[in-house]
Nucleic acid binder design. Sequence first.
DNA 1: GCCGAAGGTGAGCGGGCGCTTAGCGTGGCC
DNA 2: GGCCACGCTAAGCGCCCGCTCACCTTCGGC
Lengths: 207, 207
Amino acid sequence: MNTAEETAGGETSAWGEVTPDAARRLLVAAVEAFAERGYHATTTRDIAGRAGMSPAALYIHYKTKEELLHRISRIGHEKAVEILRVAAAGEGSAAERLADAVSSFVRWHAGGRTTARVVQYELDSLGPDARAEILALRRQCDAEVRGIIEDGVAAGEFDVLDVQGTTLAVLSLCIDVARWFNVKGPRTPEEVGALYADLVLRMVGAK
Amino acid sequence: MNTAEETAGGETSAWGEVTPDAARRLLVAAVEAFAERGYHATTTRDIAGRAGMSPAALYIHYKTKEELLHRISRIGHEKAVEILRVAAAGEGSAAERLADAVSSFVRWHAGGRTTARVVQYELDSLGPDARAEILALRRQCDAEVRGIIEDGVAAGEFDVLDVQGTTLAVLSLCIDVARWFNVKGPRTPEEVGALYADLVLRMVGAK
DNA sequence: GCCGAAGGTGAGCGGGCGCTTAGCGTGGCC
DNA sequence: GGCCACGCTAAGCGCCCGCTCACCTTCGGC
């Protein structure tokens, strides 16, 4: 089982490889602002201010406000695909791999809710080209989960009537965690991950 | 089982009781615009234009753009509560009532996706007072579903470890339909409703 | 010590935003 | 027929948006 690295150190660890430093600070500021208020309600002055810079500094590192969203979205989706791919390619039965995929995916959405919210809910604010690129990454997410479920069905481990529909529902359940999860609420990301892994195993009729 | 009235006649039937006529046309125009582009990306000129009126006409019927969102949100949430209350108060076993609640709630989110999208995803664009009012209606939704699940557990029909967590997951699953459902996609609202009712019965371990 | 590149700032442009106001056409009432 | 309340429009106000530009440091290389 993967560790909950995303929850440690305040969510910014995922952006470590973004350089230079000023560009990273702007990106982190944009993630926070977009998550709190939404893309269209966030101003470039707000982003620059959070990063401790003047409004004009933003345009040294990014061509437009939309480019910021695009970069955030791509990095986030690549992380999501990686989480699911690692779980899908792991050892163990289909049930164990599905439980691992769901629990780690849910932990990412709950623990890194700020990032996940932007990644999952601001897709429509991208232009056509950028959106098409991101949608390809989302299809990869779907394929990883569907692969595990197909394995389970083929091995006689799962009892599923509609594989594609069930895949959609599993991903939907995980993604929506980013909408309702509250850091100050009664549940930790680990608890929600464990609960959801159990619920998903029931959904696929795991023996 | 309730009929899928929402899908008939092009989604606007739910606004029939809004008067006068011009106010209703503006409300319907606002729902479409908010669903397509989001609250903050929608301009009052856009709403008025869709309703075939000048920008100033909007302010004869509504004090602000936010009041439009508030009215849409309240009417939509009242409809959601009603759907769940009817299902919860119906006759039959807990499993039958839960399946009815899920399938009709999902049909509403899928068939009336335009409305549901605004209702479920633009909550944060409301001011504090309006949001508090709407959150009270959402707690009623939670209470209706939790009630059915508690009944099923008490009757020995269901096998649920975490009633509140499972309730949250069931509602989350239904609500997220408004995000991904595509009218031009391969599934009808009825098919998704039936699939989801089955999945939810598995989640609660219905006998 | 001088220079150019890199990274930053303050001021501000053009434009579109939410919303207001003065005035116009029209239908119901006496 | 006169009148006014109502629903609506044309014009536009003040503001803030995304973004640009002229200029200012700082610093490594020689």
